[in-house]
Design a protein around this nucleic acid. Structure first.
Lengths: 260, 260
DNA sequence: AACTGTGTTTTATTATATGAAACACGATGA
DNA sequence: TCATCGTGTTTCATATAATAAAACACAGTT
């Protein structure tokens, strides 16, 4: 066996990830075909995962789909994150103040991953969902996170970034991205100026922990008529207040916020 | 090997579930001790799970914790459920109408599991969280789900139920539970009259699919001063409207709702 | 009635996972 | 400063668990 980890676990995770991409369940033979496994092998792996609730078998047609155990484990995990717990009241206040949904995200590779979202009423449908990823280069949350990286890590991340023009405003090269990150450091907040979704603008600020490192970012997001250019500084102030409040709860002691 | 499924998968899931219960990470040796595995075995399983993002290693102290991949898989899964997608606008409307959080849940064993929660502003902190389970016998969501079971399944579920007195109002025996389910069938909606949390009342109604079976339930929940006894019929009407709307979206064709 | 494809079970085989041993390293105490 | 201890990591001989080929059961189709 080569040094590629435990084969059986990788096979099981292959099955899980294939099923996670399907709206309908898949049968044993189909799962076997897609994973390159013999159907009897797939069958035994499926049954073990089903026994534990990570996969469910539909009695009607015998197909397999993901089980609720993932939702449970995810929920348990998310609700044990101190950051998320401490952030709740500040995010709620931000929603009340700006009237738009608020988010909390952390950096993962070249993406930001939403770990909390507080909805607002009567707001437009947004891309954000807990658990979802958004590329760092074209999101306010991501750029706020990038602003906290040292130059070496920042350059490395920019080099790994695949630029894709989601809109006419999307940043498409490293130089522009670094300029944008520099602007975040100057203003203390990041802006997504319809860079990911037409008509949607976002404003984000970084969250620090007790070591002074940026561990997350907070944002408000909504229709460009509400999160308008003219209100950037005003809304930026609210977002920074929320982010600073969370930072202090996470042990941030530097009297200066943000620490750019 | 006995017929207990694939040992390696069970071992990996044991590790995952142990880590999901910890706020802090755990070290290799500690994980080995708690799972009965040799530390070198635990090490290899951990590394494979880490390689795939289901577990993360904290560089500072080398301990392991759950990774974001669970949140991602869970999110992908939840957002592929047609039921949840179709329910969104009805739940939002329910929140606007009643002013309290709205929930969607499905039955799993003797519990109801929340698969969607739409928050309201300025509402009290509730027990409900996406992914969390609540015993069916002492929740409106659960009783609405139970009301859709045939007598055989209903009796079986009641027999399997461990009754625990969460509050002075909690149902504590099978006879009272069956009476309560009967009342749900009469009124068309279920009530949690502070049966799980002091001061919190909930009202729920069943969601049917195209086969006419109950597949989920919808509820509103909040402070007993707002979800007061006097408003049961009024709020019950709103909840039934939301649940019926979702049912229709799921292909429910029976002109009579609910179909008790 | 025959055929086809899927799901399930059995079991001989062997490839993989295991764990014992050894090593590296950091923390601790004498 | 050095010895000890406990943890994390790696190696590798081997036991055993996982595999997949074969066979069977079953439902749907022609």
């Amino acid at each position: 066996m080569t040094d590629k980890g435990v084969q059986t676990i990788n096979r099981a995770l292959d099955i899980i990830e294939i099923l996670s991409m399907e709206r309908q369940g898949l049968g044993v033979t189909e799962i076997g075909n897609r994973t390159g496994l013999h159907k009897s092998t797939a069958h035994r792996l499926l049954n073990t995962l089903a026994e534990r609730g990570y996969i469910e078998r539909e009695p009607q047609n015998g197909s397999y789909r993901l089980g609720l155990k993932f939702v449970e484990v995810s929920s348990i995990y998310l609700n044990k994150i101190e950051l998320k717990t401490e952030a709740q009241p500040f995010l709620r206040k931000l929603v009340e103040t700006v009237g738009q949904p608020a988010h909390l995200a952390i950096l993962n590779g070249t993406d930001a991953i939403y770990i909390e979202k507080i909805e607002a009423l009567s707001s437009i449908r947004l891309y954000s969902q807990i658990g979802r990823r958004i590329p760092a280069y074209c999101s306010a949350l991501g750029k706020a996170l990038m602003a906290g990286l040292n130059e070496s890590d920042l350059n490395k991340l920019a080099d790994q970034t695949d630029f894709y023009p989601y809109t006419q405003n999307t940043i498409l090269n490293k130089a522009d991205l670094l300029k944008s990150v520099d602007l975040v450091r100057k203003k203390g907040y990041a802006v997504d100026d319809e860079e990911h979704d037409e008509g949607v603008r976002c404003i984000a600020a970084p969250v620090y922990d007790y070591t002074g490192r940026i561990i997350a970012s907070v944002s408000t997001a909504g229709d460009k008529k509400i999160i308008s250019k003219e209100r950037d500084d005003e809304i930026g102030k609210y977002v920074k207040e929320a982010a600073e409040g969370i930072s202090r709860r996470m042990g941030y002691t530097n009297p200066v916020y943000p620490a750019f």
